[in-house]
Amino acid sequence: MSKFTDIGVEKVGHVGIIEIRRPPLNFFDISLINQIADALEEFDSDIEVRASVLAAQGKAFCAGANFSDPARQEKEAREQSDPADSLGQISHLYIQAVRIFRNKKPIVAAVHGAAIGGGLGLAVSADFRVTCPEARFAANFTKLGFHPGFGLTVTLPELVGKNNAELIFYTSRRLTGEEATKMGLANVCVPQDQVRAEAMKLAQEIAECSPLGLLSTRATMRAGLADRVMAATTHELAEQTRLRATEDFKEGVKATEERRVANFKGR
């Protein structure tokens, strides 16, 4: 029996495949991120694997944290609990996230649907993203009254440039797959039913190269990235801890659940 409960793991030739299996929206928590990190570490120790594809079942690639969890809502109504409780201890979540950035082999993310909040952080942890017009990319933290996390304050500016990252953060807008590709957030945009096949094609092209050359070159290109992400998550965690205690955060989560514009008070 597989030790993985929320992901599927397989190999096709020299490509490892990780499939998130929490449809339809593939919300993440510590357990899911830990399983992905474990699978990537196994690929790192497997000499036959030279590249990997990160894909997902369901409607979304990863819709981030499940702030709409009914159990959480009931608990909050009863105890005025924190809307972010469903994530578990965020500091532990980020420890697992940094493990993903420490993996040694190229990753291609097959983003066929929404990559929102921490789900965007997960997509950006890959080296490349294959997407489609129907996909949506959003760092919706400020719309929730929150601060970006998952290392996005480092990874997103490095990918799309500082000013584009500011635009994404400050507006919390959703980018289509086409807009994301134009901005450099995604590498390839194809019809939705071709996303995974195109991601496999790219991973297989990478896997045709020398495994030692790949390891060496990627280590150079991503030198220090995991350490920068670790430092970023330390700051992000401090800001998220402060903001999750505010009235605005609770209002932002509630407004998002109710699909309305939030009535923020700045407190």
Rank of each mutant, 00 (worst) to 15 (best):
T142C: 02
G119S: 12
S68I: 04
P133T: 09
G149T: 13
S52L: 08
A139E: 10
P70V: 03
L167A: 15
G117H: 15
T153Y: 08
V98L: 09
A135W: 05
A56G: 11
F150G: 02
A65G: 04
I107M: 14
L40V: 05
E158P: 03
G113A: 08
R102D: 07
S45A: 13
L122F: 00
S31M: 05
N34D: 15
I47W: 05
V160K: 03
Q89G: 04
V111S: 05
F61N: 12
E41S: 13
R50I: 04
P83W: 01
L32Q: 09
T131R: 06
S125N: 10
L32I: 15
E76V: 09
A63I: 00
R136N: 13
E79L: 13
D46H: 10
G88H: 11
D85Q: 02
L152R: 02
R136L: 12
V124E: 08
E158Q: 14
R129T: 14
V98E: 08
F141L: 11
R102Y: 01
S31K: 15
T131N: 01
A65Q: 08
E74L: 15
D69R: 12
N66A: 09
E158Y: 00
P70M: 07
K105A: 03
F67W: 10
I47F: 01
T155V: 13
C132P: 05
A71D: 15
A39Q: 00
L167V: 10
V49R: 05
Q96P: 06
P157R: 15
S31R: 13
L156E: 04
A63F: 11
N103I: 01
I47Y: 06
G119H: 12
P83H: 06
R78W: 09
F61D: 06
P106D: 06
G145Y: 02
N164W: 07
Y94T: 07
L122S: 04
R72A: 13
D46P: 06
V49S: 07
L120P: 01
G64A: 05
A139L: 06
N140R: 03
V98C: 09
P133E: 01
Q96H: 15
E41G: 07
F141I: 11
E79V: 05
A56D: 03
F128P: 02
I33K: 12
G119Y: 05
L159G: 09
N66G: 07
I116W: 09
D29I: 02
K104I: 08
E48Q: 10
A114K: 12
N34A: 15
G64R: 12
N140F: 06
P157A: 06
K105D: 01
V154T: 14
G145K: 04
E79C: 02
A77V: 02
H112G: 04
E134F: 02
A123W: 03
I47T: 15
F67R: 15
V160E: 01
A65L: 15
N163W: 08
G88V: 07
K143N: 14
A77E: 11
